[in-house]
Design a protein around this nucleic acid. Structure first.
Length: 826
RNA sequence: GCCGGAGUGGCGGAAUUGGUAGACGCAAGGGACUUAAAAUCCCUCGGAACUUUGUUCCGUGCCGGUUCAAAUCCGGCCUCCGGCACCA
């Protein structure tokens, strides 16, 4: 077989990409007798370019997919396009190109880029979410949720991005800014569609404990986001009025310390209790504004149901209507916020909890309070509950309240329902029509999909182009047949990505998804769950939470019988350059295209896998890339140099009958050790960086190896073949080329992953470390399997050791088998 | 403030169960080849001291502790990164 002297990656890579695609090497087959492995990377938004973050993400996924395939799994490794979204529409407004055209053009370009990276996707399962055969099912899920009461419409204050001219869900607001364009968010009152994700709050929270293969921090972020807290609701009677204010608290043990009540400016009772409307408007303008606490006294009093005390009612800007009941009891002694407020408005502070330790020191609750004590302790001045510990008191007081019928235990969640309406064009139409007679009517299932019309005008003015498309707008009411108007809001694109991993389980194109899923031995049952999911941590509480919600919903309507969609999750770190995340604004972007042109995809892949373990941030280094390139050139050179020597018969080498030279034996041993290291490093949470460094060590040995005889050549051949097999998931093109060059038939990816021989991987002799008093003093080579006594004797007779021990007496000797001996003398 | 994670040479990072700290790579310095350069190959490369080529001492953010033995375990701090944050 001919081999070029010089490694020209571009030539090699094009050759094999063509071969793999013609042979359809990465097709998935339904083969239930074979163990499956579903390897998934988060699909990209077709923005126009693959960036380094994608390149890293997909390189990681590709190693996993190729490795698992070689290990004998039937692997599903699909790719697709998160193709709805604002940039397409903005391009339409700016450049007059239709979003569909813009999107499909980008997809074609990016697909070519992915192929140039040599990624092993089965493109027969490609998904494009803006295609009607895909988004039809978004509409189907929406209707199902509507049917189950999980989709609803409500007028409320929502996050409005003035730059995107659309609404955002809470999860999509980061530091008060839009997650996509980073513009400041405004509050706007609108009628909106919501999905009742809060119905699944407990389920999503408890499910976190099932996520054994997820990173701790992602689970923590989800738990944090859901924000469960247990407490009680209690009614406070308004003095002189036949009306209650219901408050929520998690600290019912501090009820006796309440010295005032606060309600939200938008609380239903506020208007009735406040006479100064001007002041109220002023307060509303500062509603929820961080860092300042302001309030207005209503002139009314509430009665503490536990001790009958009359306490003033305030309207306060820091009390949120969206959480709990929109009203709180304020306990300045035990809540810093209430304390600050009390100081400002000269309200009394009443201590009712004293820490246990302080009580032991004989201190009481009469000391001057300079800040709130928010911990737990012993109750004081709390009537029949005085003297109890907080945890017990909480229980008793809750029961007392419930028995009296003036409140109940409740669990509150911090997160809100998912607002999915978007006032934009390029998204899935919400399948609803409004009829004058029948009101809001869902589009019947049989009429799906509601097609997004293509012939609309993009003016860039406020409002969706759908509002001006008469053809889209006017329709017949499904119930009475009269003229009706369609809903013009489209769905949040996170709906598209909430179930796309389901769609990959079936062939692409227009299929009857739900019937396919319901087929007794459906492909879904075979492929789900996703065995390994890989993507950026930025979706920890967005896509990953929405997907879990959708999946649980699917379970509840009988489509799947699993609780969680993603068994194992790997969140890869960011790609950093000069200490900052790569971004156009910082001007530190490295373009994968240039690297492929200069060094080839194998080098790009190898470096991004070698420079850091996948979950950590990766500091980009142009010289590091050179290093990776050097390594591949080196390997190429070794194979080239030995190309004629490699045509020898395969031989089995056994340690017992070894007749080979020491040098050959060393290489043979190193090869087995490398197989072991690379395999265990991949298995051990994908530590590709150390796997690659092991391969580098082996190649370093190969470089200086000269075979002297036929056996020596056979060992060389063995070592080179294993090197190529081990390298193939990381740098597939060069591995395939050299595999062929040493006289093998392609494809290397149809080979089995190599196995190591444990005996062969063992060093012939052990390097024994000898310590005196825990300090390294000498090393000697000893054979395997000798007893502790013999080890001790060797150590004590070592010249250096004798010097250290001198005439001191040995107090203790610790022997760690096969490693170390420590002689304690002082 | 609360919840995560991290801190190791000039740099990226190794050290898998508490048992040789610094694998592998980058950068740097020296040498070989060359008219020269590039490429390639070889050597050195944590710090300090010395009786200077091989030995001692120090060294994994800081201070303590446990242990024959600690980057690793425990307690207390410091710094950085990420998430949440008037959520009652």
């Amino acid at each position: 077989m001919y081999l070029e002297e010089k490694y020209i990656p571009q030539k090699v890579e094009v050759k094999w990409q063509k071969y793999w695609s013609e042979k359809d090497l990465y097709r998935t087959i339904q083969y239930p007798s074979k163990k499956k492995f579903y390897c998934l990377e988060m699909f990209p938004y077709p923005s126009g370019e693959i960036h380094m973050g994608h390149a890293r993400n997909y390189a990681i996924g590709d190693v996993v997919a190729r490795y698992k395939r070689m290990c004998g799994f039937n692997v599903l490794h699909p790719m697709g396009w998160d193709a709805f979204g604002l940039p397409a529409e903005n391009a339409a407004i700016k450049h007059g190109v239709h979003p569909a055209e813009w999107t499909y053009r980008n997809i074609n370009y990016m697909k070519a880029q992915l192929n140039r990276m040599g990624l092993s996707y089965d493109w027969k399962r490609e998904i494009t979410t803006c295609s009607p055969d895909y988004y039809k099912w978004n509409q189907w899920f929406f209707l199902k949720m509507l049917e189950k009461g999980l989709a609803y419409r409500k007028r409320s204050f929502v996050n409005w991005c003035p730059s995107c001219t659309t609404v955002l869900a809470n999860e999509q607001v980061v530091d008060g800014k839009c997650w996509r364009c980073e513009n400041l968010i405004e509050q706007k009152e609108l009628e909106q569609w919501f999905l009742k994700i809060t119905d699944y709050a407990d389920d999503l929270l408890r499910g976190c404990d099932e996520l054994k293969g997820w990173p701790e921090r992602v689970i923590a972020m989800q738990k944090n986001w859901i924000g469960r807290s247990e407490g009680i609701e209690v009614d406070f009677r308004i003095d002189g009025l036949n009306e209650d204010i219901r408050i929520f608290t998690t600290r019912q043990d501090t009820l006796f310390g309440a010295t005032f009540v606060c309600i939200a400016p938008v609380h239903p009772l506020t208007e009735r209790l406040i006479s100064d409307k001007m002041a109220l408007e002023e307060l509303k303008a500062r509603y929820g504004k961080m860092g300042e606490k302001i309030g207005i006294f209503t002139g009314c009093y509430a009665i503490n149901p536990l001790n009958g005390e009359k306490i003033p009612i305030y309207v306060a800007n820091f009390v949120l209507m969206e959480y709990g009941t929109g009203a709180i009891m304020s306990v300045p002694a035990h809540d810093q916020r209430d304390f600050d407020f009390a100081q400002q408005y000269n309200l009394p502070v009443k201590v009712v909890i004293v820490p246990e330790q302080q009580l032991l020191l004989g201190r009481s609750n009469k000391d001057v309070v300079t800040e709130a004590y928010e911990g737990e302790g012993i109750l004081m001045d709390s009537g029949q509950f005085s003297g109890l510990r907080s945890d017990i008191a909480k229980e008793r007081i809750a029961r007392f309240i419930e028995d009296k019928g003036i409140g109940k235990k409740v669990i509150n969640f911090r997160f809100r329902d998912w607002g999915i309406s978007r006032q934009r064009y390029w998204g899935t139409p919400i399948p609803i029509v409004y009829c004058k007679k029948c009101g809001m009517v869902p589009v019947p299932e049989k009429d799906l999909p509601v097609i997004l019309p293509e012939d609309v005008r993009f003016t860039g003015k406020d409002g969706s182009p759908l509002n001006e498309s008469e053809k889209f707008l006017s329709t017949a009411c499904p119930l009475c047949g009269d003229m009706a108007r369609r809903e013009t809001d489209t769905m949040d694109t996170f709906v598209d990505s909430s179930w796309y991993f389901i769609r990959y389980c079936f062939k692409k194109g227009d299929i009857d998804l739900i019937s396919e899923i319901r087929t007794p031995n459906s492909e879904l049952k075979y492929w789900m769950p996703v065995d390994q999911y890989i993507g950026g941590v930025e979706h920890a509480v967005l896509h990953l939470l929405y997907s879990r919600f959708f999946f649980k919903f699917m379970r509840d309507i009988g489509l799947v019988d699993l609780n969680e969609p993603f068994q194992n999750l790997l969140t890869q770190g960011m790609v950093i350059k000069d200490g900052a995340k790569m971004s156009k604004s910082k001007g530190n972007v490295v373009d994968p295209n240039h690297l492929i042109e200069k060094y080839g995809a194998d080098t790009l892949r190898l470096f991004s896998l070698f420079a850091a373990p996948p979950e950590k941030d990766l500091e980009w280094s142009d010289q590091g890339v050179e290093g990776a390139y050097r390594f591949l050139k080196r390997l190429w050179g070794i194979v080239y140099k030995n190309r004629n020597m490699l045509y020898v018969k395969d031989k089995e080498f056994l340690l017992s009958s070894s007749r080979i030279t020491d040098q050959a034996l060393r290489l043979l041993r190193k090869t087995h050790q490398t197989i072991k290291r690379v395999t265990t490093d991949i298995e051990r949470e994908f530590h590709f960086n150390t796997a690659i460094s092991a391969l580098m060590e082996l190649v370093n040995e190969l470089a200086s190896y000269e075979p002297y005889d036929e056996d020596g050549k056979a060992v060389l051949r063995f070592a080179i073949e294993k090197t190529l097999l081990l390298l193939s998931p990381f740098a597939p093109h060069i591995a395939e080329e050299l595999w062929e060059a040493v006289g093998n038939k392609p494809s290397i990816f149809e080979q089995r992953w190599p196995e190591w021989d444990e005996d062969m991987a063992k060093e012939e002799k052990i390097e024994l470390v000898i310590q005196v008093d825990g300090k390294l003093r000498s090393r000697v080579l000893i054979p395997h399997g000798i007893s502790d006594e013999e080890v001790k004797e060797i150590a004590l007779n070592d010249e250096k050791i004798k010097n250290f021990i001198g005439n001191k007496t040995t107090k203790k000797v610790i022997v760690v088998k096969g490693r170390l001996i420590n002689i304690v003398v002082s």
